[in-house]
Design a binder for these strands. Structure first.
Lengths: 217, 217
DNA sequence: GTCTATACGGCGATAGAC
DNA sequence: GTCTATCGCCGTATAGAC
């Protein structure tokens, strides 16, 4: 077919990668709504037109950011899980508390809620991650097994990965009432199904006071 | 003190109330980002300037919508809980699945994540709701009691109200893998701590296929 | 392949006329 | 109480320079 007149920068461009770094930084700091052509250009020290050369629409920016982040993230998850095949539940619990992961995921999820192209991309990587996580749990507990004789591995997986996301969402607006109680309950559950090897001292999760809401620009 | 020059429409205005109805409708249908002065004015059949007369900034629109909705919602929750003081956990579980409640709450939460005035309003009503819910659970199980001898009432509360929100968020983007497993687990938990009075047939929760993503305007 | 200049209409917001 | 005019930022399309 005849080529469309619109030209787009190469995926391999160094500039493009720098722009995506800035996008992640901006989304983490001030949310996806703070990402505009002009703001992103300023952050990266280029012209707004150049940003548009690599990303014809705003959705293209977010789509590229999500894809790049997801690939990196999936690789990290895979590595973490393969390294701890003896305690996958605990590995998933700690992984799910990772601040950047949780914040970016939630932010992109909110963004995708009403934008079809982003919605389907998020859905796809969410399914891919879940499938991988299920496989790992199935390898330890059996496909129809259970860590504790009560919860199926699917239910346990959703609890262990979902609770941190939910609590993170609340903490993002400054609500933490009874959070410690639920975290304790989940950690006691983990202790019972995947006993700790080292001393029983409970490691506080490294939660910063709150996502930065003030100190930028 | 000297009055500020800016004039604002009365809280009791009929027009103002109609506008807030439209805001709720728009947020549910297409998300908070779809609410603009012009779009809202069109929806309500008035001029954009009139909307601005009642709500000087966009945040004022959302703040008013959140406050009106929260009051209504808190009253409904209070009524539901007082009507079912024998099975508060089940009442909270069903309440938390309410589609409009979950969608509006999540939408406003995402909105509040990076907007201070909205963030604090959401935080306040979230705390107020949680406090009410905790009181009701404390009345049945004791302030330091437990429904099952394991989970504290706080942990149980967060599970029962948080899981639906998390699953709803995922369903919003079209992901449902293993959701049924977790729902089953929670319902079995409820059956064990608040036995059903009627027949054991499980009522499907009335979940529509998906939030409307296409059929509007 | 990389980058820029310019233009258009919609947006939130303000000041002020009727 | 209602509405107009205006400002500066936004997404984005296009035309073209190096």
């Amino acid at each position: 077919m005849a080529s469309s007149p619109r030209r787009v920068g190469a995926d391999t461009s160094k500039t493009r990668d720098v722009l995506l770094d800035c996008v992640e930084k901006m989304v983490l700091a001030k949310g996806y709504a703070s990402v505009s052509y002009r703001a992103l250009a300023t952050e990266a020290g280029v012209t707004a037109s150049l940003v548009q050369y690599y990303f014809p629409t705003l959705d293209d920016i977010f789509l590229a950011a999500i894809r790049r982040y997801s690939d990196r993230n999936l690789a990290a998850l895979q590595k973490a899980l393969s390294r701890r095949s003896d305690d996958p539940l605990r590995a998933l619990w700690e992984y799910s508390w990772d601040e950047a992961t949780a914040t970016l995921t939630t932010e992109f999820m909110a963004l995708g809620n009403h934008r079809e192209s982003i919605r389907s991309e998020i859905a796809e990587v969410t399914e891919r991650v879940r499938s991988l996580q299920l496989d790992v749990l199935a390898a330890k507990f059996g496909r129809d097994g259970s860590p504790d004789g009560q919860l199926s591995i699917g239910a346990a997986l959703l609890l262990i990965t979902g609770i941190p996301k939910f609590l993170n969402l609340e903490e993002g607006i400054g609500v933490t009432t009874e959070h410690a109680a639920l975290v304790d309950a989940l950690e006691r559950y983990l202790d019972s199904v995947e006993p700790r090897t080292g001393p029983a001292k409970r490691k506080r999760r490294p939660r910063t006071a709150a996502p930065d809401k003030s100190s930028l620009s």
